[in-house]
Write a protein that binds this DNA or RNA. Structure first.
Length: 510
RNA sequence: GCCGCGGUAGUAUAGCCCGGUCAAGUAUGCGGGCCUUUCGAGCCCGUGACCCGGGUUCAAAUCCCGGCCGCGGCACCA
């Protein structure tokens, strides 16, 4: 019975879920293969997640394959972060994404060199020895540089010289021949390889083994073909790159994959930009709670503060492949996460501004059993033995107790106000029955047993500000590190860590 | 400056390709009610939008033109 209910619930979700529009020209390719190609220079954020999730979901939708490819071909400006490779894999696994193949571009350099040589042979590329300024000036006028029309043998020879280190940084590049009169100057004879002095800027994986590095447009274009990618899903900022890469495909007689461009994702009140985050961390390391500080829009940050992977997935699916930029409002994210988390998460008691309450009329010791969820019994319960009749409730609830005279300590007892002195409240237990509490319409509040309490620090992000609230939590939360929980009447959050004498919680939302 | 893309309620999205069924659907937010051992969830009711101006047409959110606004690219970055 319960099993049946659960299944029908899942089916309902499935039916309600946003369907993605069909992919173009699937018939022409006969299969679907997509890829997610992050630069491992930092953690990935919500915007990257859009590319990852859409690519993965489309592959799944058509029973196709999904490739993870690390694009780490810039050891100088966007230097890969050695830990980022695994952190990105971890983020993807967290999202429930599985990949069929994985590649790292820095380990495919020989492949790129081979394609470059082929391109030189067919006259689709040339080695340009002009200083950058000079080339730019010629290009803006639509004039060919003197090296463009030299024969393939000369080009190949110069490329070998590039590889053997005869040219220094900036002295030679390999360019793809496009159209010198293309209306967009950026498209004209773009750079496919440049020289990077890896003795000065070693690559974290291959060190100084290579000095001739492919640019993004070259490596991505070649890999998409070699890996049999049929559909590329990427941000609008890549629109020009599609135009550029088309020339390379034409030189080699390859067929370009279908491309779907979508807009950027912004998250209201969050920093998403990798470079901005890196900058902030470098400049003010002491102001942040680490690389996954909850004010960032990275997946690890969202995870740390208690956003669930299903929430991210649904959010992205709802955005779809629209061309326009989307600014997600935090209210919306929180609402979705609340919905997802509600049936999944344990309820725990935390009190802010705790006040001691001495309970009269208890037979001690007393055993108190508290369910972790009002309806989902499989989430279990915790049990506390009280040998002292002392609990904590919130200051604001003391005021409620005073004005209402009676209230209910959730899952425990109905208590009546007696008196308050020296910052301590005395209350009498009137009974334990919830039915009585309901009949009397009592306010129900969370509480923490004094003998089983632990200090708690709750961090809450508000825009760029980080607030810290302190309070007392029931000791059971020490066992829930890493879990997303609902702090009854306070909000959702994730138990971040347990220190010697306190627990740290990241607040997600109310 | 030059290229390109886009503008549906506070936010996000459906519809636009193939004009009428759209006095514009959905989610969230907001207001109200019900339910509930939470100020959470659920259920019900209500609220609220086609950027502007022309044109085509019997008929335009949907097609055309102009304007305005927003975004992206113009790297030996990805």
């Amino acid at each position: 019975m319960a099993e049946n209910l659960r299944i029908s619930e899942e089916e309902r979700r499935e039916a309600e879920e946003k369907r993605l529009p069909p992919l173009p020209n699937v018939d022409r390719w006969g299969y679907v293969k997509t890829r997610f190609a992050p630069n491992p220079d930092f953690l990935i954020h919500l915007g990257n997640a859009r590319a990852a999730i859409l690519s993965y979901e489309y592959a799944r939708m058509y029973g196709g394959k999904f490739v993870l490819r690390f694009e780490d071909t810039d050891p100088r400006i966007k230097r890969p972060l050695p830990e980022a490779y695994e952190m990105i894999r971890e983020d993807l696994r967290w999202l429930g994404i599985k990949w069929d193949e994985e590649y790292i571009q820095s380990q495919r350099m020989e492949i790129y060199y081979d394609v470059a040589k082929k391109l030189l042979e067919v006259g689709g590329a040339y080695v340009d020895l002009c200083p950058p300024d000079k080339f730019r000036e010629l290009r803006n006028r639509g004039v060919a540089c003197p090296h463009r029309d030299e024969p393939p043998e000369v080009q190949l020879d110069r490329f070998e010289k590039m590889l053997s280190g005869e040219y220094g940084e900036g002295q030679a590049v390999l360019r793809i021949k496009t159209d010198l009169n293309h209306p967009d100057p950026a498209v004209r004879d773009w750079v496919a390889f440049r020289i990077i002095d890896t003795s000065r800027n070693p690559h974290p994986i291959v060190g100084d083994k290579y000095i001739v590095w492919p640019t993004y447009n070259f490596a991505a274009a070649v890999d998409d073909h070699l890996m049999g990618i049929t559909h590329i899903l990427r941000g609008r900022e890549h629109a020009v790159n599609t135009v550029k890469q088309l020339f390379l495909y034409k030189h080699l007689g390859w067929e370009y994959p279908e491309v779907v461009h979508f807009g950027r994702v912004n998250l209201e009140g969050f920093i998403l930009s990798k470079s901005k985050i890196k900058q902030l961390l470098k400049k003010y390391p002491e102001r942040f709670l680490g690389i996954d500080d909850i004010r960032f829009g990275t997946l690890s940050a969202l995870r740390r503060r208690g956003i669930l992977p299903e929430t991210v997935r649904q959010l992205i699916m709802e955005l779809g492949v629209k061309h326009t930029d989307a600014t997600l409002s935090w209210d919306n994210v929180a609402a979705l996460n609340r919905k997802v988390a509600d049936s999944l998460c344990r309820r725990v008691f935390v009190v802010l501004n705790p006040v001691r309450v001495v309970l009269e009329g208890l037979d001690l010791p007393i055993n108190v059993k508290l369910r972790y969820h009002p309806t989902r019994s499989e989430l279990g319960y915790r049990e506390y033995v009280l040998t002292k009749p002392i609990v904590y409730i919130q200051r604001s609830d003391v005021e409620l107790l005073k004005s209402n005279k009676v209230l209910r300590l959730m899952e425990f007892a109905n208590v009546e106000y007696v008196e308050e002195h020296d910052g301590e409240v005395v209350a009498r237990v009137r009974g334990f029955d919830v039915r009585e509490a309901k009949k009397l319409g009592l306010q129900i509040v969370q509480w923490v047993p004094m003998e089983h309490s632990i200090k708690v620090d709750i961090y809450r992000a508000q825009g760029l500000k980080l607030h810290r609230y302190t309070g007392l939590a029931e000791s059971a939360i020490r066992e829930l590190v890493g879990e997303v929980v609902q702090m009854v009447r306070i909000g959702f959050g994730r138990i971040d860590k347990v220190l010697k004498s306190k627990v740290v919680v990241m607040f997600a939302h109310e």
